[in-house]
Design a protein around this nucleic acid. Structure first.
Length: 715
DNA sequence: AAAAAAC
């Protein structure tokens, strides 16, 4: 099949070039601009016109990284690249992006109407949005189902779509709201799957473990010993409440479950014990503590083992929560009904475990894979809590928010709001999103009117705080989603400042609450815990630490120079695919390459403006594209239905990244495949990562055209 | 080292 954008390459070749052969920018306003030699007649007049129409005014793009293959590089130069999205408005930038527009156009028409009205009222229009969205989504879904249709028209339509980019762009911005709405869908989807995971998968994991075990044996041996030591403590402290994980499967389950905890928890302890060394192996783990220590503020020094014990998690077993209702847990009627409408008819293990503690006013650490019900696990009780002693301040103009939920990425913040907003609205409370990349106006306006719950990302929250627009002094419940990640360098400081600005006690004199959640909650949060939490209870879901048994993990060892081709073959299948790349540039380049190969693909990374980020993600969720090439911005928390394949074009940095990335597939009890590509030289590294993730996968040599590649692509 | 997160 002929690449539909073949002309682009051709044209690119006609451009003025730098000495190194890199196509020069076409406008003096672009970086890298190089005037054409007047003596050299332009080869194609047509170039300008077309350029203007399709990609003119694109943002400038930094010089192409020298490591970028020339082929892809050239093509990329035609499109906006890094930098073009940086601008907040984002409007007007869209033009640059071909991929998105093409696809968007088709769907957008419908949505547009809906978009407008809502926009303004993120906080309030919840209902309205929902209504509007649903119809849309459905239609989208339908589209998804008819892939063939798309395929047929794909190329051409896309091109046409290109032309109406601006319009799209303008709306793109608004669309945020709409996208947010999508919420329900997500929620529903997430839940269904989880349930399976929680109940079924986990057990599977356990079964799987034997394997891993053998796999890990070498390294883990030491840990086991530790584990043994710890197990007892845990029991002692916690009495293993309802979960006798230890009792039941002391052998294997315990080992594994415990181990994981140990691993996570240990960093702290270890840092204090002899254990420190072993940890290094799991680089992730040992890093956390160190980082903490490097912090300006006093390094976290576990006063004693008691404190550490608090980090020991109580595991909830799915079977133990069967028959339990939200009402049983203390959630009121309105909220319970709303949850049911969202598809959460009965609590999942993590919810059953954390809700009572949150309602009782405790600080809570919860470990649950995104979508395992984590959002509701903190969202529902948070709202319930605010309502309980919200009393008089309700709906008061300009009231200060009383709850804050922070997430590491804007997309995740949006997704969380989609779940929390309906819950809050059901009892008359308002939420608002505070994240970067979008104009201040609406956010500030919402704050002026008064909101109850803030859902956002650290940067903008801090920004508005410093500008005096956001008063956190009345925040009595703070939530950190992906808490361990929020303790990464770059996030920790802002997070600390934000938490420091929240209330210490409630109007009733109780201690303000802090809730930390993550699928990979570990000692990385130690410093934060010691600084802001008070005797937190720690929960996890038994077996959740394991990659779902419905996920097939593969590692392909490829020649570096054949990697892109292998990737192209892998993503050519029909299923929804998310490809993870280490850098934004590579993600963008791969998306371009796939598109040029006739594969409907788009990208998601920090170099895109927010409107495009939102839109591109929507392209995948709606099924208008099959492939999303993303950086780790999409690794955590993002839920997209029916992702059948996750491809790691670059190996993840650590086991956590592996777990989060692979968690994008294998949901709803469906099968999922995770394929990781590694160059020969990196075999060691990936083996270590798999080991830490407790995942077993064979490393197989692969080259373009190999049967294994075709087999995996066909899934 | 990169990515994310404010402008």
């Amino acid at each position: 099949m002929a690449p539909y954008d073949k002309g682009a390459r051709q044209r690119a070749d006609d451009r003025v070039r730098h000495a190194n052969g890199t196509p020069a920018a076409r406008s003096s306003k672009h970086r890298g601009y190089r005037a054409a030699d007047p003596s050299q007649p332009r080869q194609k007049q047509r170039w300008d016109a077309e350029e203007r129409r399709g990609r003119s005014a694109q943002g400038e793009r930094p010089a192409r990284p020298n490591w970028e293959p020339r082929d892809g590089g050239q093509r990329r130069d035609d499109r906006g690249g890094r930098g073009y999205d940086r601008d907040r408005g984002g409007r007007g930038f869209d033009r640059d992006d071909r991929a998105p527009r093409r696809f968007d156009r088709d769907d957008r028409a419908p949505r547009r109407d809906d978009d407008r009205a809502p926009r303004r009222d993120d906080d309030r229009g919840a209902r309205r949005f929902d209504r509007d969205d649903r119809p849309q989504r459905r239609s989208f879904d339908r589209d998804d189902r008819a892939p063939r249709r798309d395929d047929d028209r794909a190329p051409r339509r896309f091109d046409r779509a290109d032309r109406a980019p601006r319009r799209d762009d303008d709306r793109g911005a608004r669309r945020f709201d709409r996208d947010d709405r999508a919420p329900r869908r997500f929620d529903r989807d997430e839940r269904a799957p989880r349930r399976d995971d929680d109940r079924g998968a986990r057990r599977f994991d356990r079964d799987d473990r034997p394997q891993r075990r053998s796999f890990d044996r070498d390294d883990r041996a030491p840990r086991r010993f530790d584990r043994d030591d710890r197990a007892p403590r845990r029991d002692d402290d916690r009495g293993a409440r309802r979960f006798d994980r230890d009792d039941r499967a002391p052998r294997r389950d315990d080992d594994r479950g415990a181990r994981r905890f140990d691993r996570d928890d240990r960093p702290q302890r270890r840092s204090f014990d002899r254990d420190e060394r072993p940890q290094r192996r799991s680089f992730d783990d040992d890093r956390a503590p160190r980082r903490d220590r490097d912090d300006a503020r006093p390094a976290y020094v576990p006063a004693d083992d008691v404190k550490l014990e608090k980090l020991q998690a109580e595991a909830t077993v799915a079977a133990d929560v069967e028959g339990v209702t939200f009402a049983d847990l203390g959630i009121g009627g309105n909220i319970s009904r709303t949850l049911a409408e969202m598809g959460a008819t009965s609590p999942f293990p993590i919810q059953a475990a954390t809700i009572p503690d949150v309602l009782s006013g405790k600080d809570v650490l919860g470990r649950g894979r995104t979508g395992s019900g984590k959002t509701i696990a903190f969202g529902a009780p948070l709202v319930e809590k605010l309502m309980e002693h919200g009393g008089g301040t309700k709906r008061k103009m300009g009231r200060a928010p009383r709850a804050l939920i922070l997430a590491p990425t804007r997309e995740l913040a949006l997704q969380i709001d989609r779940t929390v907003q309906p819950i809050a609205r059901s009892v008359g409370l308002f939420t608002t999103q505070i994240y970067g990349g979008v104009p201040y106006g609406r956010q500030e306006g919402a704050l002026e009117r008064g909101v109850d719950i803030i859902v956002g990302t650290p940067g903008r929250v801090q920004d508005l705080m410093n500008k005096g627009k956001l008063d956190l002094s009345e925040v009595v419940v703070s939530v950190l989603d992906e808490a361990d990640h929020m303790c990464d360098l770059g996030f920790l400081e802002p997070v600390r400042e934000i938490l420091s600005a929240t209330a210490e006690v409630t109007p009733q004199g109780d201690r303000a609450q802090k809730l930390l959640f993550s699928a990979t909650l570990d000692a990385q949060v130690a410093s934060l815990v010691s600084e802001f939490l008070h005797e937190p209870s720690v929960h996890e879901v038994a077996g959740e630490d394991q990659a779902s048994s419905t996920i097939d993990h593969r590692v392909l060892v490829v020649e570096q120079r054949q990697k892109d081709q292998v990737l192209e073959e892998l993503v050519a299948g029909d299923g929804k695919t998310i490809v993870f790349a280490r850098t934004r540039a590579y993600a963008e380049r791969l998306a371009d390459q796939f598109e040029d190969a006739g594969i409907r693909a788009t990208s998601l990374h920090g170099d895109l403006n927010q409107s495009r980020r939102t839109r591109n993600l929507q392209l995948l969720t709606s099924g208008r594209v099959n492939v999303l090439v993303a950086t780790d911005v999409a690794a955590r928390g993002i839920h997209v239905d029916d992702v059948s394949l996750v491809v790691q074009a670059d190996a993840p940095d650590d086991y956590k990244a592996y777990l989060h990335r692979s968690g994008r597939t294998g949901r709803a009890g469906k099968e999922g495949t995770v394929v990781t590509l590694v160059p020969r030289g990196r075999r060691r590294k990936i083996e270590g990562i798999l080991e830490n993730a407790e995942i077993e996968a064979d490393l197989v040599d692969a080259a373009p055209g190999d049967g294994i590649v075709a087999e995996l692509a066909a899934r």
